Amino acid sequence: MQTSLLPKKKKAFIVAIISLSGLFFGGLRPFSTEQEWITWGNRFLNESYDPTVEPKLKKYEITLTPDHFIRLRKTYQQGKQEYYSFNVKRFTNLDYIPGTAATDTLEIKTQTDDIIYQTYEDPKGDIDSMATSWDIPVKKMTQPRVDSLRRALTFLKGKAL
């Protein structure tokens, strides 16, 4: 006679939960294609970016492109624009820096001065420079979420031409 470790009702409940998690969380398999990581990366960046740290910000657009660039364009109320961009193949590290009660910082690092920073229509004069690190204000997040972005960038770095 075979005995079960779990009663039949508990087994059925566990199977139902696992099945439903597949519907809500995209299944249990990890992302494997470039497009899945790009789609996820775009969703992550747009959900996580915290524009509230800059009250004069009129609009922003942050994008992970199919050609593996992360780009951020910010437009301020007076017309000034800031533009950041780097190719993921130059990515070396991602740090999560705790900040205020609502906002933290993601610090992206590259191999050398690989991050483009430009300003347009700046009353103080336009800037065109390069940097090795880029601080992005983000809403509070868990460490597993940060780790998943690091995995995405590392995966895409290996795919970048």
Rank of each mutant, 00 (worst) to 15 (best):
K159T: 07
T119E: 00
K56D: 14
P55A: 06
L28G: 11
K58N: 09
T112Y: 02
G125H: 04
E34N: 09
P98A: 13
I115L: 07
I62H: 10
T110N: 06
L153F: 13
W37R: 05
K159Y: 00
P144N: 05
P66I: 08
T100E: 02
K109A: 14
N42I: 14
N93E: 14
T92N: 07
K109L: 13
Y49I: 15
E34M: 01
N87H: 12
S133D: 07
R43T: 15
E34W: 06
K157I: 05
D114N: 14
A12Q: 10
Y76T: 08
V138P: 01
S21I: 09
T92E: 01
D67E: 11
D104Y: 08
T112N: 03
T142Y: 13
K74D: 15
G27L: 14
Y120Q: 11
Y117W: 12
T75V: 15
F86M: 06
S48R: 01
T39M: 09
S32E: 09
K11H: 09
F13P: 03
T100S: 02
T105N: 09
S21Q: 14
P55I: 00
G125I: 03
T110L: 05
I127R: 11
F24A: 06
E121N: 13
H68E: 02
D113E: 14
E54P: 05
E47D: 11
R145W: 10
S32A: 15
E107H: 11
A131C: 07
S32G: 13
E34T: 15
G99I: 15
S85N: 12
R151A: 14
T154H: 05
A16K: 13
T110V: 05
L23E: 12
T100G: 04
D147H: 00
I18C: 14
F24Q: 02
G27M: 14
S19T: 12
M141N: 00
K59F: 02
S21P: 14
L5A: 09
T110E: 03
K8V: 01
I127G: 03
R71M: 05
D67W: 07
S19R: 15
L57H: 07
I70Q: 02
T63S: 04
T52G: 07
Q81N: 03
F69A: 04
K157T: 06
I18T: 15
E54A: 13
W37T: 03
V53H: 09
R151W: 04
S48W: 04
K59C: 09
T65W: 03
I97L: 11
Y83E: 03
T65A: 03
E107W: 08
T132R: 12
S148D: 11
P51Y: 14
V53Y: 08
I38A: 00
N46C: 12
F44Y: 06
S4K: 04
S21E: 12
R71D: 04
E34D: 12
G125P: 07
G125E: 10
Y49C: 11
D50E: 12
K9Y: 04
L106I: 10
Y120T: 13
D50V: 09
P123D: 03
R90L: 03
T119D: 06
P55E: 01
T112M: 08
V138Y: 07
K11Q: 09
P137V: 02
L20V: 12
A101P: 10
I116E: 07
T105M: 08
I17H: 02
A101V: 11
Y120G: 00
Y96D: 01
L94I: 15
G22V: 15
K10T: 12
I14H: 01
E36M: 06
V138G: 04
T3W: 03
E121C: 11
A102D: 15
F44P: 05
Y76S: 07
Q77N: 04
